[in-house]
Amino acid sequence: MTPRQATRARRLWALVRKESLQILRDPSAFLIAGVLPLLLLLIFGFGVSLDLKEVRIAVVVERMTPEAASLLDSYRDSRFFRVRVARHRAEVEDELVAGRLSGIVVIPDDFSARLARGARAPIQVLVDGSDPNTAGLAQGYINGVWQNWLLQETASRSALVSRPVAGPRITIEPRSWFNPSLDSRDSLLPGAVAINLTLIGTLLTALVVAREWERGTMEALLATPASRGEILLGKIIPYFALGMLAMAVSTASAVWAFGVPFRGSIAALVAVSSAFLGTMLTLGLLISTKARNQFVACQAALIVGFLPAFELSGFIFEIGSMPAPIQLLTRILPPRYFVSSLQTIFLAGDVPSVLVPNGLILCAFASVLFAMLVRSTPTRLE
């Protein structure tokens, strides 16, 4: 190492040390980087679920026959439903209108007679369509219980007679890869890790340079022999280490506390997280450099960083169901590629066809933003 390089290394180390001490003395840094990630994991682990459980439905049995009782027991035994039994639909229609029930299943009076003749024996399903998502899921679960019962009834009738009873010729045997239990928590918690890194990367660093300008210490930094690159790296490196530590804590909590599977490698996780964190740290510094005010920088970081990561990354809302212009917009948002990579690493493992393109795109984002940041950082007082 030449004397000039050694001098630059000492300057960079001094800037990193100065920024690290500032982080240690700032309670908000520990709140955002330590408490907030764990709080988000607890919320998405225990409080948020996209699965329907114990849906309140009514089963109207107009005539209690053995077949109708068997179907009723199928709904009672399902973990998805909390069943109320009625004899007439008029008894429970008002509760559906009031929102106290999510659906009504009507087993008609001639249900058993139709089955005995080998004719079609339809049941009526009424759902509350005021919430389309819940209505669709409830209707799907109700139909699933009905189809399973029909298959079991056909099999039991075939066992009682010498010849097979006519039944469905085509059956569906679904298999869910990567998430066999279809537990939404297994896909939400990897996305929550992305939200945590977005907050740390944009919100914390957005306050850094703005705080320097407000306190008047930026003039002292500009008066030092340190170059723009050294000043920026001195601010990025401590927050990068803090973000990677928060990522490790979030990942460990998701795997060990909530039982989320982790089928990929730590190396892939670290590589993709580094590329994304570098992108968001650079974006946060760019915002703070332009704003020069902590309040404005904070608001801009939430709008540019947090909201797109929460709503347009595929974390909760499926990108494929969004309008075409919004889908195009998501292609220029780094969280989209990071959420996809995390879900792949956690649930599917190291899939190069997904991780390599996403990692390269994140590196490209980081390079472009860092070039913009260097050009936007002043070298002298205005």
Rank of each mutant, 00 (worst) to 15 (best):
N143S: 14
P122H: 04
Q147S: 13
L197D: 05
L38E: 04
I32Q: 02
V260T: 12
S340Q: 15
S313Q: 07
G103F: 11
L50I: 10
I236A: 08
N143E: 15
K18R: 11
A119W: 08
L41T: 07
T205K: 12
L160M: 14
G314W: 08
S102K: 15
A268K: 02
M247F: 13
E382D: 12
A98K: 12
I236Q: 07
P168T: 15
A223T: 03
I123K: 04
P174R: 10
F306S: 10
A297H: 09
D183S: 13
R185C: 05
P357Q: 00
E153M: 06
V356A: 07
D109N: 09
Q299R: 13
I195W: 09
V97P: 00
L207M: 15
L286P: 04
D131K: 09
V270F: 01
Q294F: 06
G47C: 15
A348R: 14
Q124I: 12
L286Y: 10
N133E: 14
G99Q: 10
G229S: 11
G349I: 12
P108H: 01
A9T: 15
F80E: 13
W213L: 07
T205F: 09
T279S: 04
L15V: 07
A121H: 01
S78E: 05
Q5G: 08
C298W: 12
R211H: 02
R87Q: 12
P190K: 10
V296Y: 10
G259N: 01
T330K: 14
S273P: 02
Q22T: 13
A267C: 06
A159P: 01
E93D: 09
V145Q: 05
I172W: 10
A366I: 11
N133Q: 14
P352A: 06
F240C: 06
I32E: 00
Y337R: 06
T171W: 08
I57Y: 03
D183M: 08
R169M: 14
L189C: 12
L182S: 01
F81C: 03
I172R: 03
N196G: 12
F315Q: 11
E62K: 13
Q152H: 14
L160H: 09
G47H: 11
M244S: 04
L137Y: 08
L151K: 10
L72E: 09
E93G: 02
S130W: 04
V249S: 06
S102M: 07
L12V: 03
V272K: 08
A366C: 08
R89Y: 14
F370I: 02
I326D: 05
L333D: 01
A248C: 09
I170N: 03
F240Y: 15
L281Y: 00
R10K: 08
S367L: 15
R114P: 00
G140C: 05
R157C: 03
I142K: 04
E214I: 07
E54C: 00
P66E: 06
L42S: 13
T279W: 03
I43R: 02
V296R: 11
L221H: 06
A33C: 13
